[in-house]
Design a protein around this nucleic acid. Structure first.
Lengths: 211, 211
DNA sequence: ACGGAGGGTGAGCAAGCGCTTAGCGTTCTC
DNA sequence: GAGAACGCTAAGCGCTTGCTCACCCTCCGT
């Protein structure tokens, strides 16, 4: 019943967190927060999952909220990186939108425990940490909006309401973290492919021949 | 700063909850749960918002969890009713899907505090209450899936993956409760119209002339 | 051999939690 | 107008919470 956070793509999550004990605590916190929610999770629960005593937590983190902040920060950095790479990538607007949705959804499904914490526990952050995270989210929004605007300008997309559609696309992707379960029949890749297709239809992209 | 739960359509929420004190407590609980989350809300906070002492809560409700269950049950009943009316309504599949998404999203936006609790605090329910609610959700899923299947059978829609698209449509609508704010520039009606259009595109409905 | 630094523990504190109980004022019944 | 019923409160019980503190290992350079 360990953390299901390992991926096939060689991406090793939380490798930036050191020392080892601090990372074990953080991974335990991700699991607990995702399962029960931040407020319903106790520091004893986190320490217990990491195989340590309750006091050990406070050697590596000042408060329980700092743990959430670290998780949220790292997760949002990763999410923004995924979207930015796709938005700045090669290809026409449709190809970039496909890549953005596909990879963003893939991450939300493959790392749904992390994503759940990142996307749904924002309100538990302290005000100053919250606003830091909100700034990152605005940049994610801008990345998607840029792809849509490019597609409209190039005549590839038919989107009457670019800000509204941007919101809907991101919302659709983010909510994957809520319902996705490894017990379900779909793989993260399949969901990514399905969602990329749905989003291309939403923006009225002309169907292209398969490469 | 009262509850923003009144609507223009004459629908009076929580009218089924009596006596008056029980309803005031329930409305206070909805506001508090939506704002802070179930686990971060104290019984003292709920009672305080209703203008009563902490003990007053336990005259009308056995536990704090019963309060959440009542809210969740009433909300899910309403959500299912909205979808069922649209699914069983007149018109072709595209018209019914338009009506379903439009009214479902309208409700999530107009009653976003209630919807937030209903959609995102499910895990805080006791197991037996949770499974009762999950059963209601499966019926909502079936209602949307029926519209999609009808549309595909009639040749109106182009949907390669009906269960997956059903999931995506419901997910898109539900997530409105997370991001919608009365402080934003969009009205619930506008969001409903935007989303109905986006969903019709997702299912590949042939554009029809405006009636 | 030994002092010190860093990572860890057991015990426990103050505060806040959900919930209970004894009792009070008002209203209704006959 | 006595008595029950109801709606509510003040006080507080037992427990859990986030967090702290005194102390103890193990490793390591000199």
């Amino acid at each position: 019943m360990g953390s299901a956070e390992d991926t096939a793509d060689g991406y090793r999550p939380w490798s930036e967190v050191t020392p080892d004990a601090a990372r074990r605590l953080l991974v335990a916190a991700v699991d607990a927060f995702a399962e029960r929610g931040y407020h319903a999770t106790t520091t004893r629960d986190i320490a217990g999952r990491a195989g340590m005593s309750p006091a050990a937590l406070y050697i590596h983190y000042k408060t329980k909220e700092e743990l959430l902040h670290r998780i949220s920060r790292i997760g949002h950095d990763k999410a923004l990186e995924i979207l930015t790479i796709a938005a700045d990538g090669p290809g026409c607007a449709a190809e970039r939108l496909d890549a953005a949705v596909r990879s963003f959804v893939l991450w939300h499904a493959a790392h749904h425990t992390t994503a759940r914490v990142v996307q749904y526990e924002l309100d538990a952050l302290a005000p100053e940490h919250r606003s830091e995270i909100v700034a990152l989210r605005r940049r994610s929004d801008a990345a998607v909006r840029r792809i849509l605007a490019d597609g409209v300008a190039a005549g590839e997309f038919d989107v009457p309401d670019v800000p509204g559609t941007t919101l809907a696309v991101l919302s659709l992707c983010i909510d994957v973290a809520r319902w996705f379960s490894t017990a379900g029949q779909r793989t993260p890749d399949e969901v990514g492919a399905l969602y990329a297709d749905l989003v291309l239809r939403m923006v009225g992209a002309r169907p292209r021949p398969r490469k």
